[in-house]
Design a binder for these strands. Structure first.
Length: 197
DNA sequence: CTCACGATTAGA
DNA sequence: CTAATCGTGAGA
């Protein structure tokens, strides 16, 4: 499987990257154990003008400064004081776009995933949400601002054949985003059971 | 410094 | 349906 190490891969709009990432693999190594998951649901956050985006505050804050870096970096933040949300920075420097990974499907390393999700017994519940996949892959603030094109413990791999249909819908839980709350900037693999909504 | 609240989840 | 839970950003 081909690792994605070319930064130009990420230097496109978040909308395009959100679609491009579907079907590819998000991989993680934890103390010698490999976890491999298929990306099945994504959302695009399009920049300062997008009222749902953490870049909508314009002025760089400590939290959103990573969004202004080059594509291919990791943006992870804490939500509701409890869960981590994993994003991939899109586009070039000074273009604060990002792709939010909402759901993945386990491909390899199911045992490690289950260990990280103790008390969860239905396989479907292991990774069918942004906070859930972060727990499953042990993604936390330590990975914030890391470079996905050059990280030993977290990387992406390409899938060659993409035999699936992509569905497009509204983003989830952004009622505060006014006219942007109805933009269809969420994408997911049709009929995949790990999709969150 | 204070304070309201969220790109969510698990459990009642 | 809703409580949990705390870092962040905005405002004083």
């Amino acid at each position: 499987m081909e690792k994605i190490v070319n930064r130009d891969y990420f230097r496109i709009s978040a909308n395009d990257l959100a679609i491009k990432l579907l079907g590819n693999y998000l991989c993680r190594e934890i103390s010698g154990k490999l976890i491999k998951t298929k990306i099945v649901e994504t959302e695009a956050y399009m920049g300062e003008f997008d009222k749902a985006s953490h870049a909508s505050t314009k002025n760089k804050t400590e939290r959103n400064s990573i969004l202004y870096m080059d594509g291919g970096h990791v943006y992870i933040y804490l939500i509701y004081g409890k869960y981590y949300c994993f994003n991939i920075v899109a586009n070039r420097k000074r273009k604060p776009e990002s792709v939010f990974i909402r759901a993945v499907e386990p491909v390899e390393g199911l045992e490690t995933i289950k260990k990280n999700r103790k008390n969860i017994h239905k396989e479907i519940e292991l990774t069918n949400g942004p906070g859930k996949l972060s727990m499953a892959l042990e993604l936390d603030k330590e990975f914030n601002k890391k470079d996905l094109t050059n990280n030993k413990y977290l990387w992406l791999e390409k899938k060659s054949n993409k035999n699936f249909k992509i569905k497009r819908d509204r983003r989830v839980n952004i009622d505060y985003a006014e006219e942007f709350k109805n933009k269809k900037w969420r994408f997911y693999i049709m009929n995949n059971r790990f999709v969150s909504n």
